[in-house]
């Protein structure tokens, strides 16, 4: 995994994408055969409004080097105002992330429509570069102390 040489280190990025725009945007990038950095795992949610602080914090806890939250452009959310909720959640998350001392550049919010395959690739490339600059997350090297457990309804 992480080695001393910055250039040979590949970040692990978690991308949250809404089903209707950004996930489809990634698909468009693929279908149009646009080349982009591959060091991310995508998690599809129905709407960016679903992405609550817990998702992002859990990603960091489990060692993500960067987290990208994405959804439809404002005014284009499939559920009318889901992405406005997403902004509220994102701001809350950001304030906690900063308080924890995680560099704010590791977390980003982007709107990507389903037609914007090229933009998806651009955002991914740029974000990957940015994370590469920052280096591995302090929580990434050791990996999380806690094993993910089977969820049990309280």
């Amino acid at each position: 995994m992480a080695t001393k040489d910055k250039n040979s280190w590949d970040p692990e990025i978690v991308v949250f994408a809404c089903n209707w725009c950004s996930y489809a945007g990634a698909d468009t990038a693929g279908v149009s055969r646009i080349q982009h950095q591959p060091h991310f795992r995508m998690i599809r949610v129905m709407c960016s409004g679903r992405i609550q602080p817990a998702f992002v914090l859990r990603a960091f806890e489990r060692g993500a080097d960067g987290v990208l939250v994405s959804g439809c452009h404002i005014g284009e959310c499939h559920y009318i105002f889901g992405n406005e909720r997403a902004i509220e959640q994102f701001e809350k998350t950001m304030s906690i992330v900063k308080m924890l001392g995680i560099e704010e550049q590791r977390l980003r919010l982007e709107w990507i429509s389903s037609a914007e395959g090229a933009r998806f690739a651009e955002v991914i490339n740029e974000f990957t570069e940015q994370i590469r600059e920052l280096g591995p997350s302090p929580f990434g090297r050791k990996r999380s102390p806690a094993k993910a457990g089977k969820g049990v309804a309280g």
Partner: peptide, 8 residues
């Protein structure tokens, strides 16, 4: 998660 990040 916040606590575990602090624990780390």
């Amino acid at each position: 998660s916040t606590m575990r990040l602090m624990a780390n």
